[in-house]
Write a protein that binds this DNA or RNA. Structure first.
Length: 645
RNA sequence: GCCAACUUGGCUCAGUGGUAGAGCAGUGCUUUCGUAAAGCACAGGUCCCGGGUUCGAAUCCCGGAGUUGGCUCCA
């Protein structure tokens, strides 16, 4: 007889030993919800292990992140068993739970193809339905090695396992090396879906054998699984490559080269508006604009250390009058040389210098992705040169600017403070000063942040911002880094009060990242339904009959007067067809005009996401639209349900 | 870069060895219509590129390019 004490003090009595299923069943009944595993002294354990404990425990249920992980990891064992039934002789390398699901890396004697996935899913469902218990078995290291002498992956896993006892989990015939814990039985896994397959290397090492990775996911209920699949569909619908084609925003052309973006007029005008906003905000905040050349002598990259450390990312050198030149992979050296063109006093600092600087980097072909990962891109780069006691104020200013711009685009965000990595340059005092300055600003602003220990760059700590878009997805966003390296290498100095030369503190930062990646992300964030100020075509005037064409031209003239991007659709099509085309083109404002409106000096307003809003006096409507653009207001309705979350 | 799949008209796609198709878009004509597709006609293709097998290749084989999904990578 033993007791399990629940956190509320309630005791559940058991007669040990009991079959696991009964333990789980009893706990679940007493708890009123499904128990998957238990936490004893903060350690995750199988429910079976409780049999040896008379302790206060908390139960892990599938509505917690831990519970989901345990459920999904157990799912990977079921996936493995299903694969083994269908493909005897398959070896299993590694099968963890990951965000949104789980996978198993397998080495199958015959290739598994996409057509096999539904079969695997069916087999999994059968195993789950059979609801056999997961049973933990323990072997000594030597016994384990003997058992798996013919399986190089298991041997490797045993080699890597800690301690002398190696645990296995069995469900029926199938047994797999595993640390656990697991759900009590396969029936607790819920609704499963086999998603996809892909190649992956054993331990991510490209010199090792390529394995087949099968992705699957599971949710406690069919409804939750369905909601997840719906969200994936929604993400697919928003894919910037698809919308980019629909709206004729950009393209890549094989004859130009992979990863090189051609901005079509509709995409270019969005970029123009974003850049204009960016410049306006920078100039307001005391930044100054720079321009630097797209090629430079190799000397500058030798000096910066980039050629040595990141030469693989740079394009080959070209010979100009006998000297090697390179295409610019980053903007910093140019900005530093502008600084060093003169001797500067502490009285002049800080300098806030910025450039929409286009750079080219050799990204491996397999990593290119639409506008989000490209080989030529324009960074919204800035370098701030300041004294140590100006650092906090400058960081604060950067965060102000970042916050304002992200709000304007309707993003929420999370902050991460990345501290000193194992391999780094600079003194302890430098790192302490810099890290403290970053942290102090985050605290002063009451900005919630997480510490990414050791996540800084070798030359200094940084604050990374992750954007959360309308679908709740996270994107790499603004970043602010301190740099101890380049000021040393380039002797970037100012003359202090003491008439001595001191090294400047140099801050690198971007707010948008690159125009390509940011606008690619914006397309998905808004699902193509841009705010009025960004929409390629802002207003389309649709005539019901030819009798309204003259009136349409009058409205067009007034719209142009206000600087709106507009178009008159005066073709002989029916009004329904014109509206359909306007909606498909995602034009935010459609003005329908016929004889009625012409008489009254009105226009029937139809707004994207809101529909038909009825007739308005043109004289009132147009200034309102102009104001909406001037204030850079977000779309009338959030682009996604979770936008406010 | 690695593994796999894919590449047919501007777009989305059908076509598995017998000489290329649909819908949408485009052009012309007709229609003048009230909130998501009017009708008719016309035009449009080196079937990604190169090589091979075959009497014959969009289709089969080899090589290359590009794209996609992953892996690795993203200062």
């Amino acid at each position: 007889m033993f007791n399990i004490t629940l956190p509320d003090g309630k005791k559940i009595p058991f007669d040990a030993p009991l079959p696991l299923g009964e333990v789980a069943g009893k706990i679940s009944r007493d708890l009123g919800k499904k128990a998957l595993a238990a936490k004893v002294d903060g350690q995750l354990r199988d429910l079976t292990s409780l049999i040896d404990h008379d302790a206060a425990v908390t139960f892990v249920t599938p509505d917690t992140p831990e519970g989901l992980d345990i459920m999904r990891h157990s799912g990977s064992h079921v996936l493995a068993e299903a694969i083994l039934t269908l493909f005897p002789g398959t070896k299993f390398a590694y099968g963890p739970a990951v965000e949104d699901g789980f996978y198993y890396d397998v080495d199958a004697p015959n290739p598994i193809t996409a057509e096999d996935l539904p079969k695997i899913e069916k087999a999994m469902q059968k195993i789950i339905k059979a609801n056999r218990p997961f049973v933990r078995r323990e072997l000594s290291r030597a016994e384990a090695k003997a058992k798996y002498a013919a399986d190089e992956y298991k041997l490797d896993n045993i080699e890597r396992a800690e301690g002398d006892i190696i645990s296995f989990y069995e469900q029926g015939e199938f047994s797999d090396l595993c640390r656990g814990p697991h759900v009590p039985s396969a029936g607790k896994i819920g609704a499963v879906k086999v998603m996809s397959l892909a190649g992956a290397y054993w331990h991510g090492d490209a010199t090792k054998k390529q394995l087949t990775r099968i992705y699957a996911t599971s949710f406690p209920t069919q409804e939750e699984l369905q909601a997840h699949l719906t969200k994936l569909e929604e993400a697919k619908r928003r894919d910037h490559r698809v919308i980019g084609k629909q709206m004729d925003l950009f393209s890549t052309e094989p004859d130009v080269g992979p990863g090189l973006i051609l901005w079509h007029p509709n995409g270019a005008v969005i970029r123009h508006e974003v850049e204009a906003f960016w410049k306006e905000e920078h100039l307001k905040r005391g930044y100054q604009l720079l321009y630097t050349p797209h090629i430079a002598s190799e000397e500058i990259y030798k000096r910066s250390g980039h050629l040595e450390n990141y030469g693989d990312m740079m394009y080959n050198s070209m010979d100009i009058d006998g000297s090697p030149y390179r295409v610019k992979p980053m903007n910093c050296p140019g900005h530093i040389l502008i600084y060093n063109a003169n001797v500067h006093s502490y009285r002049e600092l800080p300098f806030r210098w910025c450039e929409l600087g286009t750079v080219y980097r050799y990204e491996p072909s397999g990593t290119l992705h639409g506008m989000l990962r490209v080989r030529g891109f324009t960074q919204d780069d800035s370098h701030i040169f300041c004294t140590p006691d100006q650092v906090e104020a400058e960081i604060n200013g950067i965060l102000d600017l970042m916050d304002h711009m992200m709000r304007t685009f309707g993003y929420t965000y999370k902050a991460f403070l990345a501290t000193r990595p194992a391999k780094s340059i600079g003194t302890d005092a430098q790192w302490e000063m810099a890290t403290n300055a970053l942290e102090a600003v985050l605290k002063r602003r009451n900005m919630p942040y997480e510490v990414d220990n050791g996540g800084g760059v070798f030359y200094g700590p940084k604050i990374d911002i992750k954007l959360v878009d309308a679908l709740g997805r996270e994107w790499q966003g603004p970043t602010t880094q301190l740099d101890f390296n380049l000021p040393e290498r380039f002797k970037v100095e100012y003359v202090g009060k003491d008439n001595e030369r001191h090294k400047v503190v140099m801050l690198h930062r971007t707010v948008l990242g690159s125009m390509e990646r940011f606008i690619g992300g914006l397309i998905e964030h808004f699902a193509g339904d841009f705010p009025l100020w960004l929409a390629p075509q802002q207003v389309r005037v649709l005539t019901v009959t030819d009798a309204a064409i003259d009136y349409g031209r009058e409205i067009m003239a007034k719209l142009r007067e206000l600087g709106l991007r507009c178009h008159l659709d005066d073709r002989g099509d029916k009004i329904g067809a014109k509206i359909r085309e306007g909606e498909l083109a995602r034009v935010p404002v459609l003005l329908v005009i016929g004889e009625k409106e012409k008489e009254a000096g009105e226009a029937a307003v139809r707004r994207r996401l809101l529909g038909d809003l009825g007739s308005r006096k043109v004289a009132e409507l147009l200034p309102e639209l102009a104001a909406e653009i001037r204030e850079r207001r977000l779309p009338p309705k959030p682009a996604g349900k979770t936008a406010e979350a």
